[in-house]
């Protein structure tokens, strides 16, 4: 039985189908899934498309931002309210990939892909997951990424996060060997809200430094309550490797990733160029 394609006109219908039938896979932007189809890794079952406009909806004008899982990297890059996320969205593929690649798919992309998920992790994003026909429940992104490794089922409907009060408090850097487009040696995102010159509620996340995007909790602790200065940056670099488990792949070795992480973290924190 060759591959079939089915269309869901509502999010609830899509979630119901995905939960009921393990052989049905959601096709979001298709940039990862169609590779499997083309290479014969996915030969039977059903591809599910969603035509519900809610899947691609963006609510970006308020303090709480909501993005449908079907929102593409190009839609993020073209939205002025999301300027702080432009660097992360533009770091993904070339222009044609960005027209297609969605946020939902990025949450499932295997390392070293998943750069947008790194940015969302540093924003403390909540993932809206809909299983069966019920309403969506929200879970923190780091919990979702852990559950993903164990194989979650259902539909990711979208993500929600608070807009950084000051765009300069949010930083993103992707390190790659090929410019302007290349797969990540690593990516790093940091949200460093500042009250009275001191960092509070620091969130730092890495991509390609573990099987999923991970929080850099050692770095967060080193920065918490401190001014962003030479001493705190030095302490953050010393704690940079805590919780990391990088892999060796075609882009970089595990050793190399560990060696250069503190350097790139330091540059991100000082706001230096490459």
């Amino acid at each position: 039985m060759p591959l079939d394609v089915r269309v869901a006109t509502s999010m609830a219908e899509a979630a119901g189908i995905l939960t009921a039938d393990q052989r049905t896979k959601l096709l979001s932007g298709g940039t990862l899934m169609m590779r499997d189809v083309n290479e014969g890794r996915l030969l039977d079952g059903t591809l599910l498309r969603i035509t519900d406009p809610a899947y691609r909806q963006m609510n970006t004008s308020g303090a709480r931002i909501e993005l449908g899982a079907g929102v593409t990297m190009a839609m993020v890059s073209n939205n002025r309210d999301l300027a702080f996320l432009h660097a992360a969205a533009r770091s993904i593929g070339g222009p044609a990939i960005r027209q297609m690649a969605t946020i939902g798919g990025n949450l499932f992309a295997q390392t070293p892909y998943g750069d947008f998920a790194v940015a969302l992790l540093a924003l403390d994003a909540q993932v809206m997951v809909q299983s069966g026909y019920g309403s969506a429940r929200s879970m923190p992104l780091d919990e979702f990424l852990g559950a993903r490794e164990r194989g979650v089922s259902g539909l990711v409907a979208g993500v929600q996060f608070s807009k950084p009060q000051n765009a300069a408090d949010f930083r993103f850097r992707k390190v790659s060997r090929v410019k302007p487009k290349g797969i990540a040696v690593m990516s790093i995102a940091a949200h460093l809200p500042n009250t009275g010159g001191r960092i509070s509620q620091a969130r730092v996340a890495y991509g390609a430094m573990a099987p999923t995007a991970v929080r850099a909790r050692g770095v967060e602790r080193a920065l918490e309550g401190k001014a962003l200065d030479a001493a705190s940056i030095q302490a953050a670099k010393a704690a940079a490797l805590e919780g990391t488990r990088p892999a060796t792949d075609a882009i970089a070795s595990e050793w190399y990733r560990r060696e250069v992480l503190p350097v790139h973290l330091g540059r991100l924190l000082t706001g230096e160029g490459r």
């Binding site: 169609m34 590779r35 190009a74 593929g93 070339g94 044609a96």
Partner: peptide
């Protein structure tokens, strides 16, 4: 390549560049 990496299959769909090898025709 059929993998989205080479760009030689780039077409415009409603004016936007997309990779035809990774696009479902029925879409």
């Amino acid at each position: 390549c059929g993998q989205g990496t080479c760009g030689v299959c780039t077409v415009l769909i409603d004016g936007e560049p997309q990779l035809s090898c990774l696009t479902l025709a029925v879409a």
